[in-house]
Design a protein around this nucleic acid. Structure first.
Lengths: 109, 109
DNA sequence: CTGGTTATATCCAATATGGATATACCTTGG
DNA sequence: CCAAGGTATATCCATATTGGATATAACCAG
């Protein structure tokens, strides 16, 4: 597989962050929820994937210095970089083509 | 990642076969074409994936005893089993949800 | 103050990947 | 007729990725 080297887990994380900035654990819950429980990222995959995306410049940590809500000090917040947004969009477009092909094949309506 | 244990390559192969029975090499070309060249399965991934799908009962080989066209004797033809069709449909539905989420996130239109 | 959930991090064995290598059939053109 | 390039399948290997276990600790409800 080539693409731009985005693993399935990588895309799930990017999509979760495209839907709003979050911390790691929230990404995990988002992925599980949006897939109806079908996709579940274990802690190993989750944090390793996030770190890889940060190293690749697709995601960056930011300081959620929201003085209003008393945040959990353990949380580490992430957001997409412009590159990450581009990668997520490319992958989403590819996925759209696959869904179209699945419809043409009569697999889904 | 959980799902029903379908790797990305596995889904590409199932989708290719859902679009019509084919031999291995044709699956490879289909995947490349439908993704606009973004996804390419190397021979290692291709044949190993097919064999795994056969072993899992999602795909089965069949005899393309078409006496009309003089077939290449090397070719080995495959088709989806009912289970394979179900798995492909489930995955396509999941993918539809992801595309919807990507739209809601403003990633794509 | 205690148990359950939230949150991050790292390790490991098992699995999956791309790319190279090998073999051989088939078609086309010189 | 035969050489070359594309077609077709198969296997090997080094690397990458995964799930699950383990660890640690902060947070919160009762």
């Amino acid at each position: 597989m080539v693409s731009i080297m985005l693993t399935a887990a990588g895309f799930h994380v990017l999509l979760a962050l495209a839907s709003g900035r979050k911390h790691g654990y929230a990404v995990m819950r988002f992925v599980e929820e949006i897939s109806g429980g079908a996709v579940r990222l274990g802690p190993g995959t989750l944090y390793r994937t996030i770190n890889r995306l940060v190293a690749d410049g697709l995601v960056e940590e930011f300081d959620a210095g929201d003085p209003a809500a008393p945040h959990d000090a353990r949380r580490r917040y992430y957001k997409l970089t412009p590159q990450g947004e581009r990668a997520a969009r490319d992958e989403a477009e590819l996925m759209t083509r696959l869904v179209t092909a699945a419809k043409e094949a009569g697999l889904i309506t």
